[in-house]
Write a protein that binds this DNA or RNA. Sequence first.
DNA 1: AATTACTGCAACCGCTGGAAG
DNA 2: GCTTCCAGCGGTTGCAGTAAT
Length: 293
Amino acid sequence: MDVYERGFISGTPQSEEEMDVRKGPWTEEEDSVLKAYVNIHGEGRWNSVARLSGLRRTGKSCRLRWLNYLRPEVRRGNISLEEQLLILELHSRWGNRWSKIAQHLPGRTDNEIKNYWRTRVQKQAKQLKCDVNSKQFRDAMRYVWIPRLIERIRASSKSPSGQPTSTSNTTYTDNISNMTTSQITYANATGSVQVDPSLLPELSGTSSDSVDTQVSSVSDLTDCYNPQSASDYPNNLQKGSGLCQENVAGTWGRCVEFQATEEQSNGWLGGGDSMESVWNEENIWFLQQQLYD
DNA sequence: AATTACTGCAACCGCTGGAAG
DNA sequence: GCTTCCAGCGGTTGCAGTAAT
């Protein structure tokens, strides 16, 4: 699907190079040209790269292709549970600062993280029928999703049959499993989040992907929150305490108990830095160390 | 097997801020 | 101080692959 744009201003070609600008997916040949050029001349000055390499692409396009795909350090593949956790946490602190978040996930690009957020997290919000920036969703993520992710990581590290997909993950999950309750529930400073692993469905050993670090539906919020049935849920969250129950096959079976102070319930994005107090620098540092050391 | 709907991702677009002239 | 150029960022779009019907 070759699409070319004519680079005209007032009917006059701007330059020889801009007469034919290629758009759309990159070919293997283009990739190797760009790779070879950057390997020789280095990154930066992308307009020059585009011009001098002979690629009929814009500098922007070259930069994007290099940063998101061709760079040797780019990690491809599924976002691990640990990375999900870090993304959720960092997004809670910085909002849509994708590039900043990406800096803390080596090998992951801002584009990839942004896509993850849009396709996974926003989907959850949609399924919960609430805005991704709403208090309900933020609380649900804070008190349900993140604890569940942590529990999953713990569970996968403890699973006898389970083998984490990478050595770094092994280290990470081993340490997660050794985290204290207060570390895992990480809200104790201002309230409490009690998560009983036995109550969480994916921790019962029935989950086929319990050790896989792929993005999976098990980390979905909707697993434990049925908006039709759990009408009290948002109210309870807003009150700062209550039970988050999940409706599985029409029965109320599992719950995550939580208590939240008013301080905790204050804005997550732009409305305050309550998560900052919950997820302090030490925790972030810890996560990063475990992930990438 | 064919069609439709959905999902995930690569790439583009527009805007912003900083550096250089 | 103003203008221009460029890199970078976040939002959006379009398409390919997959799942559902």
